[in-house]
Design a protein around this nucleic acid. Structure first.
Lengths: 159, 159
DNA sequence: ATTTCTGCAAACGATTTGCACAGGG
DNA sequence: CCCTGTGCAAATCGTTTGCAGAAAT
């Protein structure tokens, strides 16, 4: 977990008059200990590995704070799957490709898509706040070879 | 409700060995009686206006069929809001702008965005199946004038 | 001392499911 | 007649909340 993040969170908590507790510390540390997506339940497990008194309720409560603070992004992946993405600060404009065959989510960035979205919103008379591009797709590798062993390979495209 | 839709649904039900019932008929008629989004509860109300024996369970079950058939699109609008979009057949590639201030959802199409999404998926080794672009935004009108009375104004852009 | 946080368990809202009966083929 | 579809109510799942005690300022 980077110091800059820890710093920002400390600042956010302070500015809101929120207290520092061992449970929040553990949850926050867990939340930013990876750059992979995780579910609420996975975060609970990770946080409990650090501090075993962490309860599910507090994870939910703390997640609310983190998402509100803008440090953590909440992703709706469809079919009720909800996931949190700590990689948001480093890559604020990334999108998601969800494989319908394998259980893989790929993140990718594309400046054109970013600009295009802003442009559309502006044209309609809005100021864009949060854009989510979600592409559900079938894996070519699986179709051609019958197996698919994709990692969490990340593809980044700049203009 | 257009005959072509009715025809496709009839075909789909038949091909799956599914039966024609008054409840399904009512739900399907209701579902395609508008080009506006609606929630499950709203659809239940609409269907009951046609056939009062329709139950909530059957609405859920029929929605599953319609979404699977590809005739109706399910939209996740964030914050747990789930909505169904019968306007999908006419405008298969539309995206959504969700106003965070007013309770408005605008649909818009953009060919560039469509192409760009396909391109990204292909580049990553996938065949795109379903793309959802969701832009959450703040209303300029509200910010400037203090009030906002947007209709469901639709903006369509061609290249 | 005061106020916020916490875990627990109950409450909650949306959706799903088991069942016995109704009704389509 | 057989088998699918239905309404109902109970079950389920993820999430939220009320409360009394614990901990932070």
């Amino acid at each position: 977990m980077e110091d800059s993040v820890r710093e920002q969170i400390r600042g956010f908590l302070a500015s809101k008059g929120l207290r520092k507790t061992v449970q929040r510390d553990a949850i926050i540390s867990a939340a930013f200990s990876t750059d992979q997506h995780y579910s609420v339940e996975e975060l609970l497990t990770m946080a409990r590995a650090i501090e075993k008194t962490v309860s599910r309720a507090t994870v939910y409560r703390t997640l609310g704070i983190l998402v509100q603070s803008g440090l953590l992004r909440e992703l709706e992946l469809g079919k009720g799957r909800k996931v949190y993405d700590p990689n948001f600060l480093d890559h604020p404009h990334h999108n998601h490709l969800i494989c319908l065959d394998c259980q893989v989510i790929l993140e990718f960035e594309d400046l054109n898509m970013e600009l295009l979205g802003n442009c559309m919103a502006t044209r309609m008379g809005f100021t864009p706040a949060n854009k989510q591009v979600r592409i559900e797709a079938h894996c070519d590798e699986l179709r051609l070879r019958g197996v698919c062993k994709k990692g969490g390979r990340e593809v980044t495209t700049e203009v």
